[in-house]
Simulated assay, not measured.
Amino acid sequence: MKKIAVFADVQNMYYTTRQAYGKQFNYRKLWQKIEAQGEIIYAYAYAIDRGDNQQQKFQEVLKYVGFDVKLKPFIQRSDGTAKGDWDVGITIDVMEVAPSVDTIILLTGDGDFAILLDKVKDVYHVTTEAYGVPKLTAKALIDACSVFHPIESELLLN
């Protein structure tokens, strides 16, 4: 049975599905789809902790689905801009688990991850997949993964 690791960039998924479709991503439906391909060995969801009650309920849903939720504090800079980026954390986790799985699945449209997918394919000979909103996913990411799954209506909450 194929061993799978899933890495969800929660902020990216939230904003891209909301912008493109006005809906939220359906993590439960995604889990069922991936589980049909093999055994999910690792599943991480990376989110920003704003201490918001509704957000905490959503994080509990992610845990219930099967994700290990990793939180980073929301940082408001003095100039009014915000920081809440998980790119380095996701990259470290992908590199750590890649030797022990057959497939790496990223849920993001962020092109910064293209070099990571190229690296794990070359070094660990894993299949790499990405789920993203087609018009908001970087071409570099689509080109770097073995399989790109466009997020469309069947993976959205009604």
Score class of each variant (00 low, 15 high):
61 V>G: 10
36 A>I: 06
32 Q>V: 11
25 F>A: 03
86 W>K: 00
37 Q>K: 15
79 D>I: 12
63 K>G: 06
50 R>G: 11
51 G>N: 09
33 K>R: 14
32 Q>E: 15
56 Q>H: 12
79 D>A: 09
25 F>Y: 03
41 I>E: 13
45 A>V: 02
62 L>H: 01
80 G>A: 11
45 A>M: 03
86 W>D: 00
80 G>W: 11
51 G>L: 03
44 Y>D: 07
77 R>Y: 15
27 Y>N: 00
24 Q>S: 14
68 D>L: 07
71 L>W: 01
91 T>N: 06
24 Q>W: 09
82 A>M: 11
40 I>W: 09
53 N>L: 15
84 G>Y: 07
85 D>T: 06
67 F>E: 01
57 K>T: 13
60 E>M: 13
58 F>G: 03
71 L>D: 04
49 D>C: 09
87 D>Y: 05
79 D>L: 09
43 A>K: 00
71 L>F: 08
30 L>D: 04
53 N>E: 15
76 Q>M: 12
64 Y>R: 10
67 F>C: 02
69 V>K: 01
59 Q>K: 11
92 I>L: 12
44 Y>E: 10
55 Q>W: 11
90 I>K: 02
25 F>R: 09
50 R>T: 15
81 T>G: 05
84 G>H: 05
93 D>V: 04
86 W>A: 06
54 Q>M: 11
24 Q>I: 02
59 Q>S: 10
74 F>P: 03
46 Y>V: 00
85 D>H: 05
55 Q>F: 10
82 A>W: 13
75 I>W: 08
38 G>D: 03
42 Y>T: 09
72 K>Q: 15
41 I>M: 05
60 E>T: 14
24 Q>V: 07
78 S>G: 10
25 F>H: 01
80 G>V: 07
46 Y>R: 04
43 A>G: 06
29 K>Q: 12
46 Y>D: 04
47 A>H: 04
69 V>D: 01
32 Q>A: 14
56 Q>N: 14
51 G>M: 02
50 R>H: 13
34 I>A: 02
90 I>L: 08
47 A>G: 10
72 K>W: 08
41 I>W: 02
78 S>T: 15
84 G>F: 05
47 A>K: 07
86 W>R: 02
65 V>K: 04
